[in-house]
Write a protein that binds this DNA or RNA. Structure first.
Lengths: 139, 139
DNA sequence: AAAATTAGTTTGAATATCAAACAATCATAA
DNA sequence: TTATGATTGTTTGATATTCAAACTAATTTT
């Protein structure tokens, strides 16, 4: 097996491990996968309009309407009117939504610690360095 | 921002980039996400029974029945009887299914090359080394 | 002011998913 | 060897997810 194949294999094994970990974490919450993703985006980037949220989620605005409806019903988010343009609604996390975001972030930190525990200090630095490069340039 | 937070951020940025890349690749095909996942698992591990496939997919056997029905209808996979135990069906990729798997694998290689292009030879080696450790021990 | 554009919602259809009930087959124990 | 129990996979009924296209309301352009 050449180096390209080897890296491909390790990359996708890693990705799949991450995926199933993420899914199992979400299943412990009261949220669906799409709701959890919306909360993560809103928590990370702050309030935004429907169209921007749809863009981040990679789905249509129609789908996003439904997701935000459910989040609103469960009191994780709310729509806020904008005076300057009454077509626009800013989606904002409620207290409960921010709480859920914080909890989810804690889970992420836990996984990172788990990963760190199998790496040396030097490897940790290498990994940060490499990920920064990839994130900035590769996608 | 401490080192743990920094790594958490880079890890999940990387994971999200990977996710949306994977989804956009699947959207170019005639396959749904769940069908593509099933093909990837069957292509990687070879033929297996429903229950094992369901386990790999992280869904119930009921859901897997539906997925395999569709793959069979589109001629990507077929059920094979087992003489020793007639309850079991081995799910096998057809020629067309293997073709689809090969194409998908090619996409994966392309992404890996894209990632490699922003790394030095040394960083490439570091990344393989680190991923191997994580995949073997962390999840 | 009319026409075109934009933001978001609704609708109708296909797919995804689960839990629970079910049918067929196999294994075990009396 | 039969009766009981366990396993494998399918079906069913319900809810969730998603999209494209039609639609409404508001804003911008001409």
């Amino acid at each position: 097996m050449d180096s390209l194949d080897e890296l491909t294999h390790e990359l996708f094994t890693f990705f799949n491990g991450f995926s199933s970990w993420e899914n199992s974490v979400i299943k412990t919450s009261e949220l669906s996968v799409s709701e959890a993703h919306a909360i993560e985006i809103l928590g990370t980037h702050g309030q935004m309009k429907m169209k921007t949220l749809a863009g981040h989620l990679g789905v249509t605005t129609g789908t996003t309407t439904v997701t935000v409806d459910r989040l609103e019903k469960k009191d994780y988010a709310r729509r806020e009117a904008v005076k300057e343009d009454r077509r626009i609604h800013l989606i904002t996390l409620t207290q409960k939504g921010q709480q859920a975001f914080a909890e989810h972030h804690q889970y992420h930190s836990n996984l990172t610690e788990q990963i760190l525990s199998v790496l040396s200090v030097e490897e940790n630095q290498q990994l940060i360095n490499i990920l920064k490069k990839i994130n900035a340039e590769a996608f």
